[in-house]
Amino acid sequence: MTTTAAVEQIEAGEQLFNDLIARDSRIEPRDWMPEAYRKSLTRQISQHAHSEIIGMQPEANWITRAPSLKRKAILMAKVQDEAGHGLYLYSAAETLGTPRDKMSEDLIAGKARYSSIFNYPVLTWADIGAIGWLVDGAAICNQVPLCRASYGPYGRAMVRVCKEESFHQRQGFEILLELANGTPAQREMAQDAVNRWYAPSLMMFGPPDDDSPNSKQSMAWNIKRFSNDELRSRFVGMMVEQVEALGLTLPDADIRFDEETQKWEHGPLDWNEFAEVLAGRGPCNAQRMERRREAHEDGAWVREAAVAYAEKQALKAAQQKAA
C-alpha cells in the first residue's frame, strides 16, 4: 500500500468513527479508532476487571465465617460471579489489543489500579450486607449506563454483569434487614457497617466533576453517559429511600433534596482519604496485592500442568492420525 492510500484509509476510518459516535452507534473491535480512545478504554475496562478480581477477596474472607449454610452458599455464588465479571471484562479489554496475561501482570506488578473501595477492611458479618447493599448498589448505578457505552464489547459485557449484579445488592440488603430486625447488638452491628461503608461507596463514583480530567472526553466519546456527581446524587436519592425500609440511618446529616436543581445533595467527602487509598496507602492495599500475587504464584503449577497435558494430548492425537 502506498503512503497516500494508507493516509486515505485512515481518514476514511476516522470519518466513520466520528459518524458512528455522532449517531450514537457502536464501535466494534475491527473499526478504526483514535489511539486515545483505545488507550482510555483499555485503562477503564482493565481497571474494572481488576476491581472484580480484587473484589473477590474481602468477601471470600467471610465464606468460612458465614452464619449459616444458606448464607455460605450465597456468598460463594457471589464470589464466583465476581470472578466471572472479571473474565467478561478482560475479554472485552482484550479486543482492544492487550492480552489478558499482560493485564494480569500489570495488576500483580502494582502498575494497574482497581477500585479503591476494596482496600477497606471487612470487619463484621454486617459488612458483607453493607457491601452488597451500598458497594454493589453504587456499582450498579455506575454500570447500568455503561451498558450503552459506545464500545460494543464493553457494553455487552456490562449487560451481562448488570443482570447478575442485582442479586448481589438484594442479598446484601437482606442481610442488613435481618440484622436490623434482630437483637440490639445485631442492629448496632448493622448500623455500624452502614456508617463505615457509606462514604467510601459514595467515593466509588470518582472525584467531583470539576476535578475529573478524563470525564469530559469520555462523555464526548459516549463511553460515560453521566458525570460522577450526577450518578452520585442519584445514588444518594435511592439510598435515602432504601435505608428507611431497613430502619437504619445514613451517617450524613447534610443529605437534602435541592428543589432548585432537582438533585440530591450530600455532606462533604474526604477526598484526601480517597487520594491516599488510591495511592496505595489505604488500610488493606498491601494485603490485597500480596494475596493476589500469592494466588497467582500458587496457581502456577496448575496452569503449567494444564498446558503440558494439552500438549501431550495434541501430540497423541497427531500420532494416532499419522498411524
Binding site: P29, W32, S91, G97, G152
Partner: peptide, 11 residues
C-alpha cells in the same frame, strides 16, 4: 477476538 462477534483481533 472475543466478545466482538466478528472474531478478529484489533487491527
Amino acid at each position: 477476538s472475543t466478545t466482538g462477534d466478528d472474531g478478529a483481533t484489533a487491527p
